[in-house]
Computed example of a mutant assay.
Amino acid sequence: MTAQRQEKYRRRLGIAVIAVLAAFCGALPPFAAEAATTERLVVNRFTGLAIDGFDPVAYFIDGQPVEGLPDFEAWQAGAVWRFHNEGNRASFLAHPEIYGPQFGGYDPVDVARGVTVAGTPRIWLIAGERLYLFEREANRDVFAADPGHVVPQANARWPELLQTLAQ
């Protein structure tokens, strides 16, 4: 190998090592935006948005997920919440414990099992006048079949899991 090729090889190797170290340390963003899973509330780590910017009140009023607008934002529980209109924003700020997703947006079926897995705003269910987000549809189906069984188990595990999540 010539000296020029050796230098080029060393340079590429150095860049590769730096890239691996940066990725390992979290300096490089992953390929897709993911929800943080070390927070008490599921928040997009790149935008700071709770439930990916969906309006939590719209689930109750419109019966479907509705994307919130940047014009109607509020800061609550360490996250930015977006709303479809000012009325929804005001309702949420008056009663965040009612409109916010239960278990901080973590899947209640997984919480009942003792693990925190971020729920998806597009897979949801309202039960007992509370919003629940799920990682996958199968978990939503399990929950819907018997919420009276899952919720007490999740409520029992939640305080212990909260201790493992960063504030």
Rank of each mutant, 00 (worst) to 15 (best):
Q153M: 12
A94R: 06
Y132G: 09
A35F: 11
V115S: 10
V109G: 00
G26V: 07
H149Y: 05
A77K: 07
P101T: 13
V151C: 00
A118Y: 01
D146Q: 10
V142D: 15
Y99W: 13
Y59T: 04
P108I: 06
C25P: 00
V66D: 03
E97K: 12
P152N: 06
V117C: 00
P70V: 14
A33M: 04
D110G: 04
L131M: 10
N85L: 08
G78I: 00
P101W: 08
G104L: 10
A77H: 11
V66H: 08
L133P: 13
E160V: 13
N85T: 01
E67K: 11
N88I: 01
F92L: 05
Y59E: 02
V142I: 14
N139R: 02
L28S: 14
Y132H: 15
G105Y: 04
A138V: 10
D55C: 10
E97W: 07
L162D: 11
R122A: 06
G87H: 14
T47K: 07
A79Q: 03
L69Y: 00
D146C: 01
R113C: 04
H95D: 15
L69T: 12
P108V: 04
A138K: 08
A27E: 09
E39Y: 05
Y132W: 15
E129S: 11
N155P: 01
P101M: 10
F60R: 00
D141Q: 15
Y99P: 07
R45A: 15
G63Y: 09
P70W: 09
A74M: 11
H149T: 11
I61D: 14
E86Q: 06
P29G: 13
L165P: 10
R157F: 01
